[in-house]
Design a protein around this nucleic acid. Structure first.
Length: 461
RNA sequence: GGCUGCGUGGCAGAGUGGUCAUGCACCGGACUGCAACUCCGUUUACGCCGGUUCGAUUCCGACCGCAGCCUCCA
């Protein structure tokens, strides 16, 4: 029975979908003005695994991840670049897809854009005004009146007066209360703008998600995800907007993933301590990055370092070595396996405990190696099982040789195989000095040899 | 200051009131011409101080340390 840690209640709860067999999932996506960094990769991978696991558990999942393609940073960046806003956002949407695809992240069912949702956004703001949750200010902005929403703060565990006591709330003359947040911003000259009942302007960030989630999934859906930093104010405001406008609960389960850190500090654009996915993929294969992300629980912080990536790479190499040496049985259904399958399910059912699931897979890998010589049929089945688990986590889907030779594009395979042949001839005539000399030569090329059952295979360091 | 969360062996990281996490690395052994791969085995833990308990890394309290949110952020 799947249990999910719900940020709203701060408890692990048994997951019960609104409609049996179906799951409606919304995740806050990227603001597209720059390349994705490893923190973005984590969100994408985490909710990719959530979606894959729900589907593997038999649910019909509708997965929505929005794109914020209009906001202050986008406007600022486009101006800096002397680039049209739409050119900028389309460019970075393409880059985002490029990175996500590389990481094996399955595309969401829909990726709604803010700029294509203006009618929904405006309609929702109108509803909020009519219901008394929002007001148009003299300056052309429209604000949400937080004092009208009694449970404001329920997600982030805050009280209005606590927030007011905070020193960092910006003073804005047009607001009735400093905590009121903007739904619609009056356009400044030169800024992109849309017509609205309150004049030309553009939407605030928070209202976009409320409008897009309710359009794509309805007023009440199952799971809403995003990074921990969005809990307040973004998701708090989404609740106020959606529940204010619709008069019903909007989300049953809120899921927030932990940050990626560098040297125990949050990785973020504003701190400037980030690595882009692009940077990392120059050095490590995408699957290594994915494995690294899944080694810790999604709610825990994840410290990024080369050492960790190297560990992930070594671990993956062992899995692929095991898979290389068997004939993987096709179409194994892990759900039917009474041993490893049950353990895997228990791990994943426990709030998507991928770290624990990986330990089951490590045991399985060892079982494959042990069975390989004494019971090849069994080994082939277990390997199929491993690949079946891997499908849920987005791992082990490539040809083992392709992984083990990753980064070999620049290598002269013909030369390598020729050298291996030379070495094997030397070995056959027990010319060990010559054989070792050739192997040293290959090692210097970052090639590692493995002599197995009369066969010599090779891989990259 | 307010509100969250965390502190596990060399590194990473699950988990539990009283037998094993797991991975990477290290060490010993088997295999190998020697290696590599693989297998077997060993070592290294639960921030500090109290309390509850027959027994606490696990529950409770204080303390110390760290991170996050309270402003844009995945």
């Amino acid at each position: 029975m799947l249990q999910i840690h719900n940020s709203l209640t701060k408890n692990k709860e048994v997951f019960t979908p609104i409609e049996p067999g179906k799951v409606k999932l919304y995740v806050c996506g990227m603001t597209v003005y720059d390349l994705c960094h490893v923190g973005h990769a984590r969100v994408m991978v985490v909710f990719d695994v959530v979606t894959r696991y729900l589907r593997a558990s038999g649910y019909d999942v509708t997965y929505i991840r929005n794109i914020t393609d209009i906001d202050d940073k986008i406007i600022a960046r486009a101006n800096e670049n002397g680039e049209k806003i739409q050119d900028l956002t389309e460019r970075f949407i393409a880059e985002m897809h490029h990175d996500a695809d590389a990481l094996g992240v399955i595309r969401p069912d829909q990726e709604p854009k803010a700029t294509e949702s203006m009618a929904d956004i405006i309609a929702m703001i109108e509803t909020l005004i009519i219901k008394g949750y929002a007001y148009a200010a003299d300056n052309g902005d429209v604000y949400y009146d937080v004092s009208e929403f009694p449970s404001y703060g329920k997600l982030s565990g805050r009280q209005l007066d606590e927030l007011r006591a905070g020193e960092r709330v910006a003073v804005n003359e047009a607001k009735n209360d400093p905590l009121d947040f903007v739904l619609w911003k009056a356009a400044k000259p030169e800024e992109p703008a849309w017509e609205s009942p309150w004049g030309r302007g553009r939407p605030g960030w928070h209202i976009e998600c409320s409008a897009m989630s309710s359009r794509c999934l309805g007023q009440h859906f199952d799971i809403h995800g995003g990074g921990q930093d969005l809990q307040f104010p973004h998701h708090e405001n989404e609740i106020a907007q959606s529940e204010g406008a619709h008069g019903c609960q909007s989300v049953n389960y809120w899921m927030h993933n932990g940050f990626v850190r560098i040297d125990d500090e949050k990785m973020s654009k504003s701190l400037g301590n980030f690595f882009t996915v692009r940077d990392v993929l120059e050095k490590y294969s995408p699957e290594v990055v994915r494995y690294f992300i899944l080694t810790s629980h999604y709610r825990s912080p994840l410290n990024y370092s080369d050492e960790q990536l190297e560990q992930a790479k070594s671990a993956l190499t062992r899995y692929y070595t095991a898979l290389r040496d068997v004939n993987v049985q096709q179409s194994v259904q892990w759900q039917q396996d009474q041993d490893f399958g049950v353990r895997f399910r228990e791990a994943m059912d426990d709030d998507f405990n991928t770290a624990l699931a990986l330990s089951v897979m490590a045991d399985l890998r060892q079982a494959i190696n042990k069975a390989q010589s004494i019971n090849p049929e069994r080994a082939n089945y277990l390997a199929g099982l491993l690949v079946s688990f891997g499908h849920v986590l987005g791992l082990f889907q490539q040809n083992p040789q392709d992984f083990l030779l990753t980064g070999s594009d620049d290598l002269d395979v013909a030369l390598i195989e020729q050298l291996i042949e030379q070495r094997n001839q030397a070995r056959a005539s027990k010319n060990w000095a010559k054989a070792d000399e050739v192997r040293d030569q290959l090692n210097a090329m970052n090639i590692i040899l493995e002599d197995n059952a009369g066969q010599t295979s090779w891989r990259r360091v």
